[in-house]
């Protein structure tokens, strides 16, 4: 029942986004959209995914959107009448195909659906014996389909290279205040005393929580992606409150640009070591003489690789955007 209510809320927020011309509110509504989606994932027992969606969807992409809007401006022209018909037709056609398909879909939550019969049972029953960590999602993510996650880290790295090529590494020494929404005259730091106090109070726990999520991925929900993103949002908070300049002194972008590569290479190194020791690429059982330990170390190592890459990429992209928003 709960997810039906949440889905209705989703529909309402999407309708609002379609109608809105003021982009700032549209971006905030997208962030609300992600929070709602995260809560739906919670209800559908997808804890890891809810974690990531909340951190990534609501946190990081909203920051990127806001940074882009700070540069591009917040007003967009309403779509003229004639430009509505064509998309409407295409969209309704695709929608009909999807509805036609939904007639044969297995019932929602149906235990006998083919999805649960073929490949999944082995993960559920044997993963404890074969791979080890109780959190099956982490064991599937890191070990069974480790190559997928390797591709995934590749995607993040590609985005990093792309943004770096386009916007530069955010290295220009610019001491600029974060953009105050109303563009009011620059107030001295004194005005921000409340925010600074709260920030000092909150940033430390956030960073520690990120490390907790990183190492705790085997037992509870969590893992490399979530940890990286939470660490990055901690740094964003610091940058937004204290300004880009101190944040760049804390994590100099020129050196930070190495870390995504280091994370990806760490991940690949684990794979290559397993190749050198005789197994196939990313086969952790051969890492140490005892296969179960091998899997354990393997997962820890690649989760760390993923964490480093994702955190470094998100922070670097933020610095690139902030450098441009003069």
């Amino acid at each position: 029942m709960i997810n039906m209510v949440l889905l209705m809320l989703l529909l309402a927020s999407v309708y609002a986004i379609i109608r809105l011309d003021r982009l700032l509110t549209a971006v905030l509504l997208t962030s609300l959209f992600s929070v709602l989606v995260a809560s739906i994932f919670m209800v559908l027992d997808a804890v890891d995914v809810a974690f990531t969606e909340a951190a990534v969807g609501a946190g990081v992409s909203t920051i990127f959107f806001l940074a882009a809007l700070a540069i591009v401006g917040r007003q967009c022209k309403p779509t003229p009448r004639r430009k509505i018909i064509a998309p409407l037709i295409v969209v309704s056609a695709t929608g009909c195909v999807l509805l036609y398909a939904s007639l044969d879909m297995p019932r929602f939550g149906e235990p006998l659906a083919p999805v649960h019969q073929h490949v999944a049972p082995r993960y559920l029953n044997d993963s404890a014996a074969e791979v080890g960590p109780p959190n099956i999602v982490t064991s599937v993510l890191a070990s069974y389909r480790g190559y997928d996650t390797f591709g995934e880290v590749g995607v993040v790295f590609t985005a990093f290279i792309g943004v770096l090529m386009l916007l530069g590494a955010g290295t220009r020494r610019t001491s600029i205040e974060p953009p105050t929404p109303t563009g009011a005259p620059k107030e001295s730091m004194r005005k921000k005393v409340v925010l600074k106090e709260v920030a000092d109070l909150v940033i430390a726990p956030v960073l520690i929580f990120a490390l907790y999520v990183q190492w705790h991925g085997d037992f509870g929900p969590g893992g490399g992606f979530q940890a990286g993103v939470i660490f990055a949002s901690g740094i964003f908070l610091y940058a937004l409150i204290y300004g880009i300049e101190p944040a760049q002194r804390l994590l100099p972008p020129r050196r930070l640009a190495y870390f995504p590569a280091i994370g990806l290479l760490l991940y690949a190194a684990v794979g290559i070591i397993s190749m050198l020791r005789g197994g196939n690429f990313l086969n952790y059982s051969v890492l140490v003489n005892d296969p179960l330990h091998g899997q354990h170390y393997g997962i820890l190592a690649i989760e760390l690789g993923v964490g480093i890459t994702v955190a470094a990429v998100m922070i670097n992209i933020f610095f690139s955007f902030s450098e441009r928003s003069l």
Partner: peptide, 8 residues
């Protein structure tokens, strides 16, 4: 990849 047989 990873030493696991195909469908898994």
């Amino acid at each position: 990849m990873g030493g696991w047989p195909p469908p898994w």
